Amino acid sequence: MSMVWTVYLSGEIHSDWRERIETGVKALDLPVELVAPITVHEDSDDCGVAIFGREDNKFWHDRKGAQLNAMRTKSLLAGADIAIIRFGEKYKQWNAAFDAGQAAALGIPYITLHPTEHDHALKEVDAAANGVAREPEQVVDALAYIIRGDMPKS
């Protein structure tokens, strides 16, 4: 029986990159389970106060949510075979940089996914990465190669 690879998808939540990877993985019938942080922004922000109670101070409101989200992220990342770390165009993803650092510290191989405009800012993150992709479809091709040795069909 072949291994099912767990791939953690970290990073920005404002574009369809996760869906494009999922579509590609399904199209190639790769043995991959995709896992991710909570990608509904409001849920991620408000989970702590929804569960543990209201906070008047925004710092504590954010902290409650961040602590719950950190438990999810840490657990999913630690259980991943590979991480994909996406840095989008619109916002700075400090959380993605943190995830890349954690992946590197845990010895989890990762691929960064970002536009060329971010090359300089991410030079250290990219230097520790096992690959740098520009498009989600390149990530799918990389997974197909890593898992089955398949070369891209272009």
Rank of each mutant, 00 (worst) to 15 (best):
R18M: 11
L28A: 08
E33M: 09
Y145E: 09
A97S: 13
R20M: 04
A121D: 15
K92G: 12
R18E: 01
I147R: 02
I85G: 03
A97W: 04
D46S: 12
N57A: 10
P115K: 12
L68R: 06
F59D: 07
R86K: 15
A103P: 01
S10D: 04
L30T: 11
M1T: 13
D99P: 03
L30Q: 03
V25T: 04
K58G: 04
T73E: 13
K58E: 14
P152A: 08
H118Y: 09
T73I: 14
E12W: 05
L34H: 04
D126N: 14
T23G: 07
E124R: 05
K123L: 00
A83M: 06
Q93F: 01
I13Y: 11
K90H: 11
D56T: 14
M3Q: 13
V49G: 05
L77R: 06
A50C: 09
L76M: 14
P31F: 00
A78K: 09
H14T: 14
A104E: 00
R18D: 06
A127H: 07
I111W: 10
K123F: 09
L34V: 05
E137Q: 14
Q93I: 05
Q93P: 00
L9I: 09
A83C: 11
P152V: 06
M151F: 04
T112E: 11
L30A: 02
R54N: 08
P136W: 05
T73Y: 05
D29V: 09
D126W: 02
V32I: 11
A104N: 06
R72Y: 02
D16L: 06
W5E: 05
A105G: 09
Q138G: 07
F52D: 14
I13P: 02
S75R: 15
L34W: 00
R54S: 08
V132Y: 00
A83T: 14
A144T: 00
H118V: 03
G48N: 09
N69C: 14
E22V: 02
K153E: 10
R54Q: 13
K64I: 07
M1L: 10
S75G: 11
V7Y: 01
